[in-house]
Computed example of a mutant assay.
Amino acid sequence: MNEPQLLNHIEQYVQQFMDEHYRPELLYHNKEHTIRVVRAAKQIGEHYRLNEQDFLIVVAAAWFHDLGYYTAGRTDHEKEGARLAADYLQRQHVDTDTITKIQHCILATKMPQNARTLLEQIVCDSDLFHLGTTDFADCNKLMRKEAEAVKGSEISKADWRSKTIQLLQGHQYYTDYCRILLNDQQQQNLDKLLQKEERKKEELPETKQPEQVIEDKKNRNKETSRGVETLFRTTSANNQRLSDMADNKAHILITVNSIILSVILSVLIRKLDNNTHLIYPTILILATSVSTMVISILATRPSIPAGIFTQSDVDTQKVNLLFFGNFYKMHLEDYARGMWKVMGDRDFLYGTLIKDVYSQGVVLGRKYKLLRLAYNIFMFGIVVSVLAFIIAIYTVQ
């Protein structure tokens, strides 16, 4: 079986099928959507380095996964798509095992998704890839218009937004690749919808029953918790980026001064016997380079605590269990017991997150303070050294 050639045939067949069975109400589940899903399936499949047969399975499933919309409508379109895939692939003499796997991948996309194998997970993540992209808002509008066209009546923005929020809150990507690539943007898309929801509530004050007030407070607490979690996640990510920047700056200083030292030690020092007037400028530039390197190394040199915490530290909530330096020598059971206590106590959890962010800030402050000192020494030392060389040379002349 020639997999690439078969995929070309499948692409031509599916696109021709869609053209021949064109349905104007399919404003979202159309050819453009299918092509996006196929593109995502190829991207994820290439990341996991699938062999040719597995790559054929996920891409073929992506092509056929919504084809049932064109013949059976919204109800059980996954079964119809799986049937259409089997009919076509049997005519292409594809083996039964491959056809079955393709059908399972298509059926796994039925909401709520139920993927068991990696191939099914890839197809499911490809189908909802847009939830974690900047195209989400445009896709969501098309889905609403399609639902209205199929239903034959208008759907209020508030109702649609509420259902979309439920979808985003309940959705999680299966593959690690998609979670790393798309989770942040999916959360941003959800946050935007939640902000719109909150603004609409503020714009439409109304008399509420006590039960409604309690429910609203619960919802606001949930949204506040989500906002706090986003705050901590964003702050930690920013601190990590700043730490990486500091390490890169220190690396630049160390590399540059290593080159300067190499040149001085290998070339200039040999000639000092005949050029005694250059001794002091050479010592000056050597001192500058060595001092800069030492301080840059100090800025990036890690300091590791004892790696052990006691039960009293957990009971008094004095230990930060998110920093590896506090537990790397502990047994898993002891650490897990402490983490369960953290997760079971909201105040302890937020307190731990605060300690973690604060610790990151302290480390960053030390790094950048040393880096500033290193850059100052390097800047002023180089300027003074160059002037010393110039003065020494002109004095001899």
Rank of each mutant, 00 (worst) to 15 (best):
residue 5 Q to Y: 12
residue 8 N to L: 09
residue 16 Q to M: 10
residue 17 F to R: 01
residue 17 F to G: 00
residue 18 M to I: 07
residue 22 Y to A: 05
residue 28 Y to S: 09
residue 29 H to D: 02
residue 31 K to G: 10
residue 32 E to T: 12
residue 35 I to F: 07
residue 45 G to V: 01
residue 50 L to P: 00
residue 70 Y to P: 00
residue 71 T to S: 07
residue 71 T to D: 09
residue 73 G to L: 01
residue 78 E to S: 05
residue 81 G to F: 01
residue 84 L to N: 02
residue 85 A to T: 00
residue 93 H to M: 07
residue 95 D to G: 02
residue 96 T to G: 06
residue 98 T to F: 06
residue 100 T to R: 10
residue 101 K to W: 04
residue 102 I to W: 00
residue 112 P to L: 15
residue 115 A to K: 02
residue 117 T to S: 06
residue 121 Q to D: 07
residue 122 I to K: 03
residue 129 F to M: 07
residue 130 H to N: 06
residue 140 N to F: 05
residue 141 K to C: 08
residue 147 A to M: 12
residue 149 A to V: 11
residue 158 A to T: 10
residue 159 D to E: 15
residue 163 K to D: 10
residue 164 T to I: 05
residue 166 Q to F: 15
residue 185 Q to N: 05
residue 185 Q to F: 07
residue 186 Q to I: 04
residue 187 Q to V: 13
residue 191 D to I: 08
residue 204 L to C: 13
residue 204 L to E: 13
residue 204 L to I: 14
residue 212 Q to D: 13
residue 212 Q to F: 07
residue 214 I to E: 09
residue 214 I to V: 10
residue 231 L to H: 13
residue 231 L to Y: 13
residue 234 T to H: 13
residue 239 N to F: 03
residue 241 R to M: 12
residue 243 S to R: 04
residue 243 S to Y: 12
residue 244 D to V: 09
residue 251 H to Y: 12
residue 259 I to G: 03
residue 264 I to M: 06
residue 271 K to P: 07
residue 271 K to Y: 12
residue 272 L to F: 03
residue 276 T to Y: 10
residue 278 L to F: 11
residue 281 P to V: 00
residue 283 I to H: 06
residue 284 L to S: 09
residue 286 L to Y: 09
residue 292 T to N: 04
residue 293 M to G: 06
residue 294 V to D: 09
residue 302 P to I: 06
residue 308 I to S: 15
residue 311 Q to Y: 10
residue 314 V to Q: 03
residue 321 L to D: 00
residue 325 G to W: 00
residue 327 F to V: 11
residue 327 F to E: 00
residue 327 F to D: 00
residue 331 H to W: 03
residue 333 E to F: 10
residue 339 M to S: 06
residue 342 V to Q: 03
residue 343 M to P: 03
residue 346 R to Y: 14
residue 348 F to M: 13
residue 350 Y to M: 07
residue 350 Y to L: 12
residue 351 G to S: 03
residue 351 G to D: 02
residue 361 G to W: 08
residue 363 V to M: 13
residue 364 L to P: 00
residue 365 G to C: 09
residue 367 K to D: 07
residue 367 K to I: 10
residue 369 K to H: 11
residue 372 R to V: 08
residue 373 L to R: 15
residue 375 Y to C: 11
residue 376 N to V: 13
residue 376 N to W: 14
residue 379 M to L: 15
residue 386 V to M: 06
residue 386 V to P: 00
residue 387 L to W: 15
residue 388 A to H: 01
residue 388 A to R: 01
residue 396 V to M: 11
